[in-house]
Write a protein that binds this DNA or RNA. Sequence first.
DNA 1: GACTGGCACTCGTTACAGTCGAGTGCCAGG
DNA 2: CCTGGCACTCGACTGTAACGAGTGCCAGTC
Lengths: 340, 340
Amino acid sequence: MGLDDRKLAVLRAIVEDYVSTQEPVGSKALVERHQLGVSPATVRNDMAVLEEEGYIRQPHTSAGRVPTDRGYRLFVDRLSRVKPLSPAERRAIERFLVGAVDLDDVVHRTVRLLAQLTRQVAVVQYPSLARSSVRHLELVPISTTRLMLVMIADTGRVEQRLVELPGPVPADDVTDLRRLVNEKLAGARLSDTPPLVQALVDEAPAELRPTMATLASVLLETLVERHEERIALAGTANLTRGGLLDFQGSLRPILEALEEEVVLLKLIGETEPSTTRVLIGDENEFDNLRAASVVSTGYGPGATIVGGLGVLGPTRMDYPGTIATVRAVARYVGELLAQN
Amino acid sequence: MGLDDRKLAVLRAIVEDYVSTQEPVGSKALVERHQLGVSPATVRNDMAVLEEEGYIRQPHTSAGRVPTDRGYRLFVDRLSRVKPLSPAERRAIERFLVGAVDLDDVVHRTVRLLAQLTRQVAVVQYPSLARSSVRHLELVPISTTRLMLVMIADTGRVEQRLVELPGPVPADDVTDLRRLVNEKLAGARLSDTPPLVQALVDEAPAELRPTMATLASVLLETLVERHEERIALAGTANLTRGGLLDFQGSLRPILEALEEEVVLLKLIGETEPSTTRVLIGDENEFDNLRAASVVSTGYGPGATIVGGLGVLGPTRMDYPGTIATVRAVARYVGELLAQN
DNA sequence: GACTGGCACTCGTTACAGTCGAGTGCCAGG
DNA sequence: CCTGGCACTCGACTGTAACGAGTGCCAGTC
């Protein structure tokens, strides 16, 4: 129960050593590398307590100790300070993100940057449509019975949908539709649109109503209800660092999980405002990812959050460093978005 | 040199057995599983010749034989027929691709389908801009000095770029610009646009000329010169099938290669019309992929090719089956695109 | 001349025994 | 409460031996 300061220091030392060496750490090595001011025997007693409490464990009877998920949790919550970034890292972030022209470009650069800095798998969610407002809706005739609906959101996202019309629609009508749609929806948050879209159909002149109705249904179904989230991924090769020791030798489940957008969204998308979330090992709801940890946070222009980003790596990761990097990158991306 | 029919039959048998069992195949096992009509000793003599010619090799002195890259090549070129797809596979393809609404949707479904059917890593290139024509260009004012340029191509691709204007431009001018640009460019192949774009600037009314010039430079730079290719990837988890035997134990180089769009494009993008290309092991130009094979082909509506798709797997793969699947999927995708 | 059975040989795999040493738990004493 | 000492555990490593799959070669047969 009561863990005095020294026991906590021992735990911290174990985590730090294990993270950097990747080998179970014994009492002797510990007192050599850290100034704990006590003998190995004392450390052993402390270790016994820590093990009893479930913070560390022994892989084999005659091996050193390794932190458990619970141990990492305690470490993250109480024993570590966020490491300030090195100037080199700061510069890397700026250099990498400057010159991005496009939202796509921003997201791609960000995810690569994050993967490179943390040396882990990076995930970036595109600004969520649910948190976007409509900037403009464009209707482009493809044929007489087909329209391309292009929605430009204030977050920079651009989505297009092919709309199959109930019948041929002359060019003038398209112009009218475009005007009507924009008058009603421009500036509205996407999540607030359903009643507006309904009104749009109700108020449309009789001859445009059927067309407007199809348009409305595409809008509602594909852009509002089915929240189309997009995700970018990078750094999967980093999973192979640290030999086959991490992830208990099989990358399979991890790679499988990374292919599921739904999984990734749950991991980095559900983010409470401006907190950095750390999921360690089995705190995570997916069986495939029991051997992994996720550090994620939200980003957005100013104080609002429009999407999430984060990294995934072995539970044995450098939490303070990773947390610092993820936060810093999120902040820079936010500033970048605010400029546009 | 002279490989008589039986020696070729032996090579075929070795390839087939090794592909299915993943274990070096010996002379005894070979005569048991295939009706070669001769004794193991004879087969051994044939094997010795095949080894001398570089088609097979022995991992260890006292082990069976394994095909070399050269052996696979001979097998693919002369010893295998394309396997017809099973009805189940046909159905799977149709079921999977029906109901795709979007180009994005088509590409994503295709790449997942391909990964699932071949149980390998699938790569699909979006229809290349270089091979697309302009269907429509849309200019959407974002602020007085910013436009969103949206290009819709006949292949279904939609690209957008933010254009930073030299000065404020009134809404009416935007309308004019839009009309001018579309009059000149709609219908043109993207690769033919440079002179047209130049003409556009030259012919523009004086007051629109600076704006048109910036617009033109964005168009040329980001859409024509720097061919923006997009790629979708799926099935990386399949790399872990077959334990650690394939890819000599390290996925690292493969995963790294898969992160490079340039590499993927070279692998599946450079495709001569309507051929299926098979790259085996070190035939491939990238060191990282010396342990892998790639089967790729082009796809497009009708006879024209607009992009490439393919799969990547261990050199020890089921070539006939994979080739058949890749071809079939490409054909279906082509039909799908033709409908739009 | 081509094929076959037989045989000696190679060499990776597996099993087993023995040693080594890192690391532990416990205890008695400061 | 901390420490030094000590017996103990057990994985890692080493060396040896037996095993067996597979080969190459050769002499004999059709």
